[in-house]
Amino acid sequence: MIRRLVCTIVMASASSAWAQDFVVDGHWIDRCLGVQDNPMICVGQAAHDCAQKNGGGTNIVLGACHEAEAAFWDRALNEAYQHLLRLARDREGQDLGYAPDNLQIALQEMQLAWIGYRDASCGNAIALAAPFGSAAGPAYHSCVSEHTARQHFILRGLRRDYEN
């Protein structure tokens, strides 16, 4: 019994020692988006907050935190994209003069072009940050985060246009 308890404590403390939670506070971002006219102001700050909570802004920590924020925006973008795809499909079915798949294909092409643009931009961000140094990590992940967030806002704006 005692042995099991000790074991549990050790495991618990071991895991808390590794509680390098490179996560961003999604609620903070949501609150920021609720009050800012310009949503881009809300991009990047959660990653800096995450870095502070993990002992400060070394490049490795900063990179991991930007990566976590990029994952947040990626989920948001995917959700917006799927939603928009459904709306496009509905609209094509409404006899508004669109050829079947007309809107869906255009949306898919835009998203494919965006992926090419993001990869080329952020590959370049690595090259621009000291190429042999640890600054490449934060440069790459903050670039992906910024691009993903911006594309999410664009798609979200389009979704609102549709629903109005």
């Binding site: 508004l96 003069g97 669109y98 007309n102 809107l103 255009a106 949306l107 092409e109 835009m110 494919l112 072009a113 965006w114 090419g116 643009y117 990869d119 080329a120 931009s121 590959g123 370049n124 090259a127 621009l128 664009i154 389009l158 246009d161 549709y162």
Partner: peptide, 30 residues
């Protein structure tokens, strides 16, 4: 790698993205 070529490639990707995005926008007006 030639960073100048990379930068030009990036700009070409951006142009493709801009055109695809604005084409999509344009289509909304039917």
């Amino acid at each position: 790698p030639d960073l100048v070529a990379q930068m030009r490639a990036m700009q070409r990707q951006w142009i493709a993205y801009r055109d695809a995005a604005c084409e999509w926008d344009y289509l909304q007006w039917g």
